[in-house]
Amino acid sequence: MTAHPATHPTRSIRSPGWVPFALFTLVLVPALSGSMRLVELAGGPHLLSANPRITASPAPVVVHIVCAVSYAVLGAFQFSAALRRRRPGWHRVAGRVLVLLGLAVAFSALWMTQFYPRQTGTGELAYLFRLAFGSGMGASIILGFTAIRGGDVPQHRAWMTRAYALALGAGTQVFTLGIGKAVFGTSELTTDLSLGAGWAFNLAIAEYIIRRRTSSDRTSMATARVGS
């Protein structure tokens, strides 16, 4: 029985596709907010509300913002299958850079969570969420890097997808905080749960994508066996 190779539209080969640009949209608001904070710390005009925690110790915030925006933008292109096929070397080099950026994002977030004064309007639950999801992001990057070093591509993709989903938590939290406060009012518990919902929602989407990809890979392998 002869297997006929699947044909791909020309556009999918020549362009990175819509996924990176959708991810850019999600990260746009926190990226703009972070950029304004950097301008402020560099001596520019105060475009955001004052934050004494950041003013007292700006270095971790600068590291976090610069690395988080870079990680989000560069990482978005790693999800382009067309780009991975066309430029595998670029994918590998960018991946190594992203490991360093991602770990800097996770560890700076954990440092701020542990050593900065508690953010006004948040409680113990938000503190625990930040510790859990920050640690989860760092662990996912390490596990993803270990997997690819061992040649396990599916596990590498799965762990890196989880790490990226957690990194984009701030983008989703723009929506969960807005919805949470609109529905339940402004309170410490609402804020904490809304923050946690942002990370949890992203992680749920990541798990759906991982399972769908795994199912698709299994179907492709079964089809290849039948056609061989």
Score class of each variant (00 low, 15 high):
80 S>H: 08
191 T>H: 15
225 R>A: 04
47 L>N: 02
68 A>T: 11
95 G>L: 07
94 A>N: 06
149 R>G: 04
222 A>M: 04
109 A>K: 06
204 A>M: 09
226 V>L: 00
133 F>W: 10
94 A>K: 00
148 I>S: 03
104 A>P: 00
141 I>L: 11
108 S>F: 07
35 S>Y: 00
3 A>R: 15
176 T>I: 13
100 L>T: 05
31 A>D: 09
86 R>Q: 05
14 R>W: 14
217 D>C: 00
48 L>F: 01
121 G>R: 07
133 F>R: 08
167 A>I: 06
18 W>T: 09
220 S>F: 02
32 L>H: 07
110 L>D: 04
51 N>D: 14
132 A>I: 15
74 L>Y: 04
22 A>S: 08
84 R>L: 07
38 L>K: 10
52 P>N: 11
43 G>K: 13
184 F>R: 02
147 A>K: 11
122 T>V: 15
102 G>E: 08
5 P>E: 01
128 L>Y: 13
44 G>I: 14
164 Y>H: 07
177 L>Y: 12
159 W>R: 12
1 M>Y: 10
219 T>N: 06
88 P>E: 01
153 V>E: 12
61 V>K: 14
151 G>R: 00
119 Q>R: 07
184 F>H: 06
194 S>K: 06
161 T>I: 15
15 S>G: 13
153 V>M: 06
63 V>L: 15
161 T>N: 03
127 Y>H: 09
27 V>K: 03
76 A>H: 08
78 Q>T: 01
162 R>L: 00
182 A>G: 09
182 A>T: 07
4 H>C: 04
219 T>E: 15
220 S>W: 02
49 S>G: 03
50 A>K: 13
211 R>L: 04
29 V>P: 02
56 A>R: 05
142 I>V: 10
145 F>G: 07
164 Y>L: 07
180 G>I: 09
45 P>C: 12
8 H>T: 14
220 S>R: 00
93 V>G: 02
53 R>C: 12
189 L>V: 07
134 G>V: 01
106 A>Y: 11
11 R>Y: 10
156 H>G: 05
49 S>D: 14
145 F>R: 08
13 I>A: 14
50 A>H: 11
21 F>T: 13
196 G>H: 10
219 T>M: 03
13 I>K: 15
160 M>Q: 10
214 T>P: 00
12 S>M: 06
28 L>Y: 13
96 R>G: 01
24 F>Y: 04
184 F>E: 00
2 T>E: 08
84 R>G: 07
143 L>E: 03
144 G>I: 14
33 S>H: 09
57 S>D: 02
48 L>W: 01
183 V>R: 08
19 V>I: 11
38 L>Y: 05
120 T>M: 09
219 T>V: 07
155 Q>R: 15
202 N>P: 14
28 L>G: 08
146 T>A: 06
97 V>C: 00
103 L>G: 04
49 S>V: 10
135 S>V: 13
170 A>F: 12
190 T>V: 15
76 A>F: 12
74 L>D: 03
188 E>Q: 15
200 A>P: 12
86 R>T: 00
225 R>D: 01
93 V>D: 02
41 L>Y: 06
151 G>V: 00
40 E>P: 02
75 G>F: 01
173 Q>P: 13
156 H>Q: 10
24 F>E: 09
101 L>Y: 00
130 R>M: 10
38 L>I: 13
118 R>Y: 07
